[in-house]
Write a protein that binds this DNA or RNA. Structure first.
Lengths: 205, 205
DNA sequence: ATAGTATTTGACTGACTGGTCAACTTAATA
DNA sequence: TATTAAGTTGACCAGTCAGTCAAATACTAT
């Protein structure tokens, strides 16, 4: 039980600012100002700006986790889990657009891509978190196999990589097009095509 | 015919530095130093750092164009064009890793994603260039349809969006994983699955 | 109350930021 | 040779950068 919420205020402010803008364009002063915290306190809780960025990433993940857990609940048929996830992502992106004025995409992708060439530790963190998300896909695919809906001979990890890469690609396109379109029909339809399962919901695109 | 190559030296230096690192982490001074050009000359040719970034993007595109033209030559069967493009991309990424020490991904994706929230003009430029690349996919798909290899009822533009998003996703993963793996089998196999054509070359993944 | 610890503050550093500018050199033209 | 324009230079700006630190304050346990 923390005595104060200064640390969390800094993490929240940084998460927001970095997701909207970028790591490089947000200064420690900006973050402190947004969090209404003085510079000295920043360096009491974090040893560097990079250190705070790492904490922000973990914070993003923890905020997203309940939604993944709900979407991929064992009570839900595996294919529907992907549909549910796509719906949640669309909703979150729409919220961000409303709040921040533009579509923000995936924070791990944006930050990870920006910093990959300079801060190995951020690149690794993004990579590691991506691995956590892939576990959801893997579990769902296992169940699809058990139900005979998915070819038994495929390599599940490789297939999960593709599902994830496609999702990240759509998130990237959402940010760069400043549009929610990639999150609408494209995301779920693409996932189904990569999974290589029958998917006749509504139309084919 | 320009009298000097100062402008191009600046563009080349900026392209390299920004691709390896990021827009935010590269200063005008860094670029000038790398190009062996003084600051005043920089602002003789470019009205701002953003202006140079835009010129760099156009430069990236022009460098890539001959490779796309070759891969998507009408003399090549349409499906093979994708295979050829995947091979070229792998080769270029391997070169970059050798030269710069790490996998760099797609310059438009990295720069576009980083700056999307701050510099509308860079976001738009990335978006516009993406549109140019999609034309290659669209043309190839038209021919696939003519040859009866692709379902006639699909929306080609939507399908091209998905192909492109998947490619960008793999490029992003390459950068974040600092690995060439996403460019190897995953890229072409994923494209074929999204296209929804028969593709039995070697194994299924 | 007191001692000790955790937290907060804001002034400070020195390097660096993107950008400006007036003076200078070079090359082409008339 | 004189004129003009294009290109180049390096000093210079005001502001910002990430990070430091000693002192002040608040909290906790005795």
């Amino acid at each position: 039980m923390p005595k104060t919420n200064t640390k969390q205020k800094l993490i929240d402010a940084a998460s927001e600012l970095i997701w909207r803008n970028s790591y490089g364009s947000v200064s420690v002063d900006d973050i402190c100002k947004a969090a209404d915290v003085r510079k000295g306190s920043f360096y009491h809780y974090f040893k560097s700006k990079v250190d705070l960025a790492l904490a922000s990433m973990e914070n993003y993940y923890e905020q997203s986790k309940p939604f993944f857990d709900e979407a991929f609940s064992p009570t839900r048929p595996p294919l529907e889990r992907f549909e549910r996830l796509a719906a949640i992502i669309l909703e979150k992106q729409a919220e961000a657009r409303e709040t921040y004025g533009h579509v923000c995409g995936c924070p791990f992708a944006t930050l990870g891509s920006e910093m990959a060439g300079q801060e190995e530790i951020i690149r690794e963190k993004a990579n590691e978190i991506f691995g956590r998300y892939e576990k959801y896909y893997i579990q769902a695919m296992r169940e699809l196999m058990d139900e005979g809906l998915l070819d038994q001979n495929i390599d599940i990890q490789t297939r999960a990589n593709k599902l994830h890469a496609f999702g990240m690609g759509q998130a990237l396109m959402g940010r760069i097009q400043n549009s929610l379109e990639p999150f609408k029909r494209d995301l779920i339809v693409g996932w189904m095509r990569i999974l290589d399962v029958q998917y006749n919901e509504k139309e084919r695109a």
